[in-house]
Design a binder for these strands. Sequence first.
RNA 1: GCCCAGGUAGUAUAGUUCGGUCUAGUAUAUGCGGCUGUCGCCCGCAGGACCCGGGUCCGAAUCCCGGCCUGGGCGCCA
Length: 439
Amino acid sequence: MNLDSLGDWVRTYYSSNVTPDMDGSEVTLFGWVQEVRDLGGIRFIILQDREGTLQVTIPKKRVAPEVLAKSDVLQKRFSIGVKGTVKKTNMTPRGIEVIPSEIRILNIAAEQLPIDITGKTPANIEVRLDARALDLCMEQNAAAFRVQHHALAAIRDFLFGKGFLEVHTPRIIASATEGGAELFAVDYFGQKAFLAQSPQLYKEQLTMSSEKVFEVGPFFRAELSHTRRHLSEFVSVDVEEAFASAEDVMRLLEQVIQYTCKAVSEKCSKELAALKYRATVPEIPFKRFTYDEVLADLKSEGVDIPWGEDISTEAFRVLGKERGYYYFITDWPTHSKAFYIKPKDGKPELCEGFDLMWRWIELVSGGTRISEKALLMERMKEKGLNPESFKYHLQAFDWGMPPHAGWAIGLERLTMVLTGKKNIREVALYPRDQMRLTP
RNA sequence: GCCCAGGUAGUAUAGUUCGGUCUAGUAUAUGCGGCUGUCGCCCGCAGGACCCGGGUCCGAAUCCCGGCCUGGGCGCCA
């Protein structure tokens, strides 16, 4: 088939911007054929673009022969341009249709597509991910990423407003951030290096100059976690603030979450409708439960966890049933948290680390950090880490490290909460996990 | 890493319990034909599949063994 070129055509409207009051006006549209319905004497072409769909109507006896000939060969996913006249009508859901005066076929597509893009026969997640570029052409599958976009824009907006500086720390590092086991090794000019699992140490160091920093970026964990809420490559929203405590950054966090939920509910009504999900804006402050309180609650629910042990996923699910909202868990046993979390003054078996939960999912973790070098080294040793391999980090603590605190949001997990998706792979464009490295 | 479950047309599934009208059904998609107001259009026709290898048996989609692949759960974590 001979393809047409774009020529001098310029899009005048997205499909969603064509409205009934434009009756009679000329438009130039670009997009893809989503569906062709041919009734014999009349043919309907559903044109899809980024913003939605619109009906191109071809009364076969009343359009130019060239237009009819072009429309004869159209198939699903053909990339086309349409010049035509807007017609107000009560026979389409949108109240408009476009009668074409010229159609340009810009590219063709395979007759048999690997997934059903009309959604009549939904494909399984692994089939969809194998054909992800096509999968994302379906509005309900792309919607989560538009929600994520607006959520991240809101987070940035809020943090900028609070004076945070956006920074970029290395992805290629020489030693482990929190321990060794779960890092991906890479060859760095013959030297052994790793993909960063977190910007933790760098963002802490940056508090001694920039004071309030945040970073948004991908991090890598080689954990053999085969669940619906783990990825090997995920996006973290990391915040660190000088002269602040856990309580300070918890207050910041709940404001960020509330602001983000508000932005999503205001800007993403179309996306949420496509997702069949309702956004809620949570009240703040979020409830705070100590680790001890959570253990007591669990005991009354019949789940017995010995003090000091981690709360199992099963136990979190029990908690999540009672608490269908955002809540903090504070005052964790010191040994259960990372070495850089500050033990409580006068009660060193507990620490100033916290988790923000949504139902049973851990969304955010954070805490007050240790700013005193000797204590930090001591905690490293308790965790079986060798301070020598952290010497470049530790030296910063000789140069005026301020007291500081921070947190990290799992962006995909937040997107799950905001979109109601039950599998994290739905909210990563090209998810990476234990089983998947392609596409 | 450990524990479950599962691989049937492009997609989604029925059939597997208890081997035999299964020449493998259905929906959707695809191709061809018909239809002037569809919007999950409709109607007719056609082509299209039992993951791979081995075994048991008169006979295997179905039972057994091995492999490969996938989904889910646990621990860990965001």
